[in-house]
Write a protein that binds this DNA or RNA. Structure first.
Lengths: 222, 222
DNA sequence: ACAAAAGTGTTCGTTCTACACCCATGT
DNA sequence: ACATGGGTGTAGAACGAACACTTTTGT
């Protein structure tokens, strides 16, 4: 039992983990194993422990519930409407993360019955205010993709230009001319060319993130 | 007394209020009237009450401690290092706000001994991690000024082109060519020309934010 | 052999940048 | 009268947008 002089809210984190399979964008959801909303789909997340930062908490809960250990994870908004959780006052710090969907095995642990990828445009009904958290994360992603090279976190180390373009188009909702897109990317200096496809035809040239970018923190933390 | 089954952190808000006097940028600080850090300077802010959102809390505390009621106030980061407050675990949701410095009277109320503007490049020693919160708010401002027309919140309803330019230069840390700057602003469509200075000389042309922009929420909330 | 996907250059319009002079006001 | 600050236009460079054809691979 914990006793305080003034009332305190519970604090939780929720994470919107985006994944890409070469075609579509997905979000990682869990089926809740406990009340409230037992049996419905929700974002992975949970309550803050006494000695961790919210970032620690988001990472811990993600790993416990789904096995995911994203490289890139960032907080983007606090949801604090008093009625957002029917049990008690819960304030949620929301994060978004980008992972290579292929790169880890889904594990359902803990109080998550199972973890599962859902296509962003075929989401099931969601617990709490999680639908609006996802909406909000999408807007954030659309905003931030112009500022930092985060799209690469969704792709394998080596990727092709059309794959990269697809990611940009899905995130921004616009479409781009193939040649202009490739030129702009190439001249921006963040790409390294791994293996060129020589002639012209259906084989794909492989690119990767330039090393200078990959390990320069200023690109990622602004 | 409040009793919970699991430990909970205290949740507070802290606000970085920027002001502009025609020359320099300022931040609104209070002198703490209570321990810890009694007598030193700090950001206005305080603890979340049971039935308010973090936005409500930030507004309430700002008004109580300084009298400020900013039009534009937005959360930007959660600071959650367990040791950031010596008393107990306090998690802080940080906000930044922009006000017309001329437009309100400073009032010191509550547990603030007094409220006062400090120039951004002559800040006193600050309580807690408030120095780094301010640093972080500045970076945020630098980032967001390219996306939304928030600079106008620092200026009077009517303002001159050189004043507007000064705000941009202070926030971004760059300087711009007068003519290019004026052209870009004029052609961006967010300005309305109030009174043109006819000839050319030292009288200033007055501008204001275009009405369409002023009351179109999409410009402000993205 | 046909359909689907990937590679490749050029032109044109727009935007950005750099730059110099004149006038009005206050001291 | 002089210093300060504000107004104004143009030319060249960089950037962004639009556009068609050829090759390869899989069916």
């Amino acid at each position: 039992m914990f006793i305080y002089k003034y009332p305190r809210p519970s604090v939780a984190t929720d994470s919107v983990v985006f994944g890409f399979d070469g075609r579509e964008l997905f979000v990682l959801l869990i089926e809740r194993g406990v009340e409230p909303f037992k049996g419905s789909w929700a974002l992975p997340g949970g309550f803050l422990k006494p000695d961790e930062t919210v970032e620690d908490c988001a990472r811990r809960e993600l790993e416990e519930e789904t096995g995911a250990r994203p490289e890139y994870l960032e907080q983007f908004h606090v949801f604090s409407k008093p009625s957002r959780d029917p049990r008690t006052r819960v304030l949620s710090v929301a994060f978004y993360a980008l992972v290579r969907k292929s790169e880890f095995r889904l594990i359902a642990g803990d109080d998550a019955a199972k973890a599962c990828w859902y296509s962003l445009d075929a989401l099931p009904p969601l617990a709490f205010d999680h639908a609006s958290i996802i909406e909000s994360a999408r807007r954030k992603l659309r905003e931030v993709i112009h500022t930092r090279p985060i799209a690469f976190k969704l792709l394998d180390k080596k990727f092709s230009m059309p794959e990269l373009q697809r990611v940009y188009e899905l995130i921004t909702g616009q479409s781009y001319d193939r040649r202009n897109f490739a030129r702009k990317m190439s001249s921006s200096g963040v790409l390294a060319c791994e293996e060129a496809a020589p002639g012209s035809g259906r084989q794909k040239t492989a690119y990767s993130l330039a090393k200078e970018v990959f390990d320069d923190d200023s690109f990622w933390n602004l």
